[in-house]
């Protein structure tokens, strides 16, 4: 089992149209790094120059906003699902 990442429309041009990708478990930071290896440029869309999540990016792990967890350092286990949602749409548990 791996971690499933759901790719939102604005990023699908980078993911070659893929809506869902699988990555190995680990910290959110390492997951973003492995997304970057597959889809060059995706990290810059999600994180600012300091590596923090951009203001308008919301990331949820199994529905929980990572800002309420440990942000970019949150550990994500196999089987979890990650959603990337623009802040315009909002959303939290």
């Amino acid at each position: 089992m791996a971690v499933i990442v759901r790719i939102p429309t604005p990023l699908r041009r980078l993911s070659n149209g893929e809506e869902k990708v699988e990555v190995p478990e680990g910290s959110l930071e390492s997951i973003i790094d492995s997304l970057e290896q597959s889809f060059s440029g995706i990290k810059g869309r999600l994180c600012d120059d300091r590596g923090e999540l951009r203001t308008f990016v919301n990331i949820y792990i199994d529905g929980e906003d990572v800002r309420f967890l440990e942000g970019i350092n949150t550990q994500v286990k196999s089987g979890a699902e990650i959603s990337i949602v623009p802040a315009v749409a909002g959303g939290k548990n």
């Binding site: 939102p8 429309t9 604005p10 990023l11 041009r13 869309r45 999600l46 951009r54 203001t55 308008f56 990016v57 623009p86 802040a87 315009v88």
Partner: peptide, 10 residues
């Protein structure tokens, strides 16, 4: 379209 592809801004 409502979201910026570059930074997710509105």
């Amino acid at each position: 379209l409502n979201v910026c592809e570059m930074c997710f801004g509105p």
